[in-house]
Computed example of a mutant assay.
Amino acid sequence: MNTLSKIITWKRNILASMAILVALVVLSFYGVYTNQFYFFKPDNYIVPILTSVHFIYLYVVWFKIVEDELPDPKMRNIEYALYTIMIVYFFKIYDSAIVLNSVDVYGEHVIPATFKPMAALILVLYCVLPILTLYTFWLRKRFIGVYNFENYNDNLNIWQ
Rank of each mutant, 00 (worst) to 15 (best):
M1V: 15
M1H: 15
T3D: 14
T3V: 14
L4A: 09
S5R: 15
K6D: 11
T9W: 04
W10I: 05
K11Q: 13
K11R: 15
R12T: 13
N13P: 04
N13A: 09
I14D: 01
S17C: 06
A19S: 11
A19H: 02
A19R: 04
I20V: 10
V22S: 08
A23G: 06
V25H: 07
V26Y: 02
L27H: 02
F29C: 04
Y30P: 08
G31R: 12
V32I: 09
T34A: 14
N35K: 09
Q36G: 08
Q36L: 10
F37C: 04
Y38S: 13
Y38V: 14
F39D: 04
F39V: 05
F40M: 10
F40S: 14
K41E: 11
P42S: 09
I46L: 09
V47L: 12
P48M: 00
L50A: 05
V53K: 01
V53F: 13
H54M: 11
F55E: 00
F55P: 00
I56E: 03
V61M: 01
I65M: 00
I65R: 00
I65C: 00
V66D: 06
V66G: 03
E67I: 00
E67C: 05
E69Y: 06
M75D: 03
M75I: 03
N77F: 09
N77C: 08
Y80S: 06
Y80P: 04
A81K: 03
A81M: 12
T84G: 12
T84V: 11
T84Y: 14
T84K: 09
M86P: 04
I87A: 10
I87Y: 07
Y89F: 14
Y89D: 12
F91C: 09
F91K: 09
F91N: 12
D95V: 11
D95Q: 11
S96C: 09
I98D: 14
N101T: 15
N101V: 11
V103I: 15
V105F: 15
Y106V: 06
G107K: 12
E108N: 14
E108R: 12
V110Q: 15
V110P: 08
P112T: 04
A113N: 13
A113Q: 15
K116T: 15
A120H: 08
A120I: 07
L121W: 05
L121M: 06
L125S: 00
Y126G: 01
C127D: 02
V128T: 05
V128K: 02
L129R: 01
P130D: 01
P130L: 04
I131H: 04
I131Q: 01
L132A: 01
T133D: 05
Y135E: 04
Y135C: 00
F137W: 07
W138H: 11
R140L: 01
K141Y: 10
F143S: 02
F143M: 04
F143W: 07
V146H: 14
Y147S: 09
N148I: 10
N148K: 13
F149R: 02
F149E: 07
N151I: 03
N151E: 13
Y152R: 09
N153W: 12
N155Y: 08
N155H: 13
L156N: 08
L156E: 08
Q160N: 14
